[in-house]
Nucleic acid binder design. Sequence first.
DNA 1: GTATAATGTAACTAAAACACTTACATTTAA
DNA 2: TTAAATGTAAGTGTTTTAGTTACATTATAC
Lengths: 136, 136
Amino acid sequence: MNNTRFATVIHMLTLMAKYPGQWLSSEWIAGSININPVMVRKELSLLQHWGWVQSKKGKEGGSMLQVPATQITLADIFMAVKSAHVLGKKNKCEEGLCPVGRNINKALQQLFDDADTALVDSLRDKTLADFVQEVS
Amino acid sequence: MNNTRFATVIHMLTLMAKYPGQWLSSEWIAGSININPVMVRKELSLLQHWGWVQSKKGKEGGSMLQVPATQITLADIFMAVKSAHVLGKKNKCEEGLCPVGRNINKALQQLFDDADTALVDSLRDKTLADFVQEVS
DNA sequence: GTATAATGTAACTAAAACACTTACATTTAA
DNA sequence: TTAAATGTAAGTGTTTTAGTTACATTATAC
């Protein structure tokens, strides 16, 4: 995770949770985060895909939360944006070039999966609602 | 962590743990990992800095472990190579541009630190020796 | 109906992170 | 004295990430 996607998405969700029932424009959300509105819209499409957010096109349109903030955990949010393993990437050890290396890579895979799980587990007991409360 | 440093370093340490008391050349280590020897030497300087590894220049030189593999935990290794937070980076929310945003960023900082801690804690009960045993 | 203001998305550009590579000074042992 | 290794700086190439432009589409207010 050497990107800002988790920060961006939780920021977006927090704003929507703070203003429930209101159509927030991507322009306005982007302003609060200090990023480009198109980036916001890209992440919005992810949030829609997960059923967390509803968007409305056209004038007076925008986006709002579709599920209670108590039902979204930080683990859910992390998994939605996670790309790589938390311990990083593996080296490419292909075509049997590395005799010892192949076994190591197999053990690494397990280790990487375990680490991902440990982190996600630690995020499971905090909800978006909890986070929003900390902010207010 | 969207890089291969953890994988590279634990691979290197595993090799040195498997061949204790032998001077392993960066060329040979790099061959097993299938990466460039210079990358290996860069990471070696990190491992030396932590006192885990000893290197010898000149002909018949190389590197070897200087401490027992039982005394290096995966948490130690992770912390040695970790650059960003496991949840990623924060958005730049400077100069009070974002009224709501500033509070969120403060809460995010805490969350990011907690997540890092949770991951490190989960890595603390496994040593390099444990990992090497899994590989063999 | 028409103007306005929003989303949705593709395509492109810019910047940053990452890994590779070259080169060479230095060191050490056979 | 030669060979083989580390140490490291400097430069290049690749990939990832973020920003930006552009525009088709949609929906509302007037």
